[in-house]
Amino acid sequence: MPPNLSELDAFVAVAQARSFRGAAALRGGSASSLSESLRRLEARLGVRLLNRTTRSVTPTEAGMRLMERLAPALGDIAGALDAVNSFRDSPRGVLRLNAPGIVAAKILPAIACRFLAAHPGVTLEVVASDSFIDVLAAGFDAGVRYEERLARDMIAVPIGPRVQRFVAAAAPAYLAAHGRPAHPKELVDHRCIRHRFESGVTPPWEFERDGETVKLSPEGPLLANTAELEVAAAVAGLGVIYGFEEFLRPRIETGELVAILEPWGQSFSGPFLYYASRTHMPAPLRAFVDFIKADAELRSQRPSPASHSASSPTR
Rank of each mutant, 00 (worst) to 15 (best):
R65P: 02
S56M: 10
P72A: 00
R39P: 00
V47S: 04
V57S: 03
L66S: 06
E42L: 08
G63Q: 11
L50T: 07
R65K: 08
P72I: 05
L34E: 05
G75W: 00
R69P: 00
T58K: 15
G75F: 00
L66P: 02
L50A: 11
R40E: 06
T60Y: 01
I77S: 01
L49H: 04
R40H: 05
L66T: 06
A71D: 05
S37V: 03
E68C: 01
R69L: 10
R52V: 15
L41P: 00
R55T: 11
R55Q: 13
T58G: 02
D76V: 02
L38H: 07
T58I: 09
R40L: 07
E68F: 03
N51A: 14
T54H: 14
E36V: 14
R55W: 06
R69I: 11
S33I: 15
N51S: 13
R52A: 13
S35H: 08
A43L: 13
S35K: 07
T54C: 09
M64V: 06
M64Q: 12
R69H: 09
V47W: 01
M67P: 08
L45M: 07
N51H: 14
G75I: 02
A73C: 04
P72Q: 01
P59A: 09
E36G: 03
S37Q: 10
G75A: 12
E61T: 13
R55D: 11
M67H: 15
E42M: 10
E42C: 10
P72V: 06
E42I: 11
T58M: 14
G46T: 14
P59F: 05
L66N: 03
L45H: 02
I77V: 08
A73K: 02
E36M: 14
P72W: 00
R48Y: 02
G46F: 11
R40W: 02
R44D: 11
R55G: 03
M67T: 15
A71H: 04
L49K: 05
R44I: 15
V47A: 07
L49I: 07
R69F: 06
L74A: 05
A73Q: 07
L70K: 11
L34A: 09
R52K: 15
T54M: 12
S35M: 06
E61W: 12
L66H: 05
A71K: 02
M64D: 12
A62T: 05
P72F: 02
D76Y: 00
R52L: 12
I77Y: 08
R39G: 02
R55K: 10
L74Q: 03
A43N: 10
A73L: 13
P72M: 02
E36Q: 14
A73N: 03
M67F: 14
R52P: 01
A62G: 14
T53M: 12
E68H: 08
D76I: 00
R40V: 10
S35E: 08
P72E: 00
V57M: 03
L41D: 04
S32T: 13
L74D: 07
G75E: 13
S37T: 00
S35I: 00
P59G: 06
V57T: 11
L34F: 15
S35T: 04
